[in-house]
């Protein structure tokens, strides 16, 4: 294993560590890094972790069409899922719709996908957004595609577990309704994170560095997992792992 650790590989390994011990992880659209993380966690699970990847023919078990993932989630059959956002705020609200006064948005995002539903129903939702800037991590989102927290009377079995960015990992404290800085990736520091984060969050006295994957994990990632992820995300797999581009 001679090649240097790619930033994407660190993120994949970090997310994969949050999935160990789970039974069923689902991955939505446009999620190459979470998808790779889920496949890595599966490869390490000895067969106990099931992965359902939207857009994949080889790694999707569903036979009842687009609705099945959602029906599964409502029944509690999915342990973890991933969501992102054009904006994410300090209460873990996410915005996948646009910037500005909806519907007259100045910048339009792709749309909410299944977030408004899955965020309330999947116990461990990992927020993932590589871009860590004050324009993404804002004090308050312009549009709530899916709320980070809900009132007592709302049926809610799921919610945010952590936020992973290109610079750090935050945990989410649902009672305090706030993020807490959990670890900082190698090469980044606490001050830099403060500078590039638009919302308030808690910082413990000692903030550890995000642990880097060991040689065994990297070998698995660059071998089996790279091949598996290439089926759904060929361009990503070629760029990060150098897999042959099938196209």
């Amino acid at each position: 294993m001679s090649a240097e650790l790619a930033p994407e590989e660190l993120l994949i390994a970090t997310v994969a560590d949050m999935l160990d011990g789970l039974h069923h992880v689902a991955v939505g659209a446009q999620s190459p890094i979470p998808g790779s993380a889920a496949l890595l966690a599966r490869a390490r699970s000895g067969g106990s972790l099931r992965v359902s990847m939207l857009g994949s023919e080889a790694h999707s078990p569903f036979t009842d069409g687009g609705r099945e993932l959602f029906d599964c989630a409502a029944q509690g059959r999915i342990d973890a899922f991933f969501l992102g956002g054009g904006q994410i705020d300090g209460q873990a609200n996410i915005n996948l719709v646009g910037i500005g006064d909806y519907p007259n948005t100045k910048v339009r995002f792709p749309g909410s996908f299944g977030s408004a539903y899955l965020y309330l129903l999947v116990p461990r939702v990992i927020l993932f957004r590589e871009e860590h800037t004050a324009r993404v991590l804002v004090p308050k989102v312009d549009f709530i595609s899916a709320p980070g927290v809900s009132d007592e009377d709302v049926h809610r079995t799921g919610g945010p577990h952590a936020l992973v960015t290109g610079r750090c990992v935050f945990d989410f404290d649902a009672d305090a309704r706030r993020f807490r800085l959990a670890s900082v990736h190698p090469g980044h520091d606490v001050d830099e994170i403060r500078e590039h984060t638009g919302f308030d969050y808690d910082v413990p006295d000692v903030v550890p560095e995000t642990s880097v994957p060991d040689a065994t994990t990297l070998e698995l990632l660059r071998g089996r997992v790279a091949d598996e992820v290439a089926e759904t995300y060929p361009a990503f797999a070629t760029r990060v792992f150098g897999t042959a581009d099938a196209a």
Partner: peptide, 26 residues
């Protein structure tokens, strides 16, 4: 949001006027 679209179509296929859907509140 995806499940609401699936649910709306399911209501139509059943010939009923609406369908309850989980989540979305908030």
């Amino acid at each position: 949001t995806c499940p609401a679209i699936h649910a709306g179509l399911q209501a139509a296929e059943k010939g009923i006027p609406f369908m309850p859907v989980r989540g979305i509140v908030g």
